[in-house]
Amino acid sequence: MSEMTHGHGHEHGHEHGDRTPVRRSELGLCAFLLVLGGLVCVDALRIPDDFTRRGPVGPEAVPMLVGGLLVLVSVLLAVDVLRGGRGQAEAGEDIDPDTPADWRTVAMLLAAFLANVALIGPLGFPIAMAVLFWGSVYALGSRDMVRDPLLAAGLSLLTWFVFDRLLGVPLPGGPLMGVL
């Protein structure tokens, strides 16, 4: 996987060191880890300490350890970020690291994904998944109004048929499959 391919990351990036938005979002990561660590600890404290425990180490010990370490790491990371440390964003063949993040595309992908979640129950697998695929390729910039929907329909029907009929993995056909 490519997460291991990037070379010598975590430069204490002075060249783009003090761009505040970058620093702010890095500190956001620290805050996330801090809140998560606190949440894990609070949840562990809630576990009743009674006769259900077996052995000297109860079910709350490891969560306390993990939560505590999360808090510790968030603080250390915050110190590192304030001293100029930056995470190296993952590189890849289709990634242009110099462009700012394209949130519009990401938002459209999320919409296509959530549409699938909402539709897969009422409309069944083939229709919902075709919506997901067409929505995704549209979001990613493909605008072929004939080939894209045909491909989406073909892919989802074929997948449904292979999984449900050939491989024995049940997937809901929905009303469409009831008609056909």
């Binding site: 296509a112 699938n116 979640v117 998944m129 997901l132 695929f133 990613l140 491909l151 993995v169 997937l171």
Partner: peptide, 23 residues
Amino acid sequence: RPYLYGGILFFASVGAYAVGGDP
């Protein structure tokens, strides 16, 4: 590339849904 990454999302969803059939 749109087909490639659209396809990845598609098959990722197939895998997640096939685990338990739960949206």
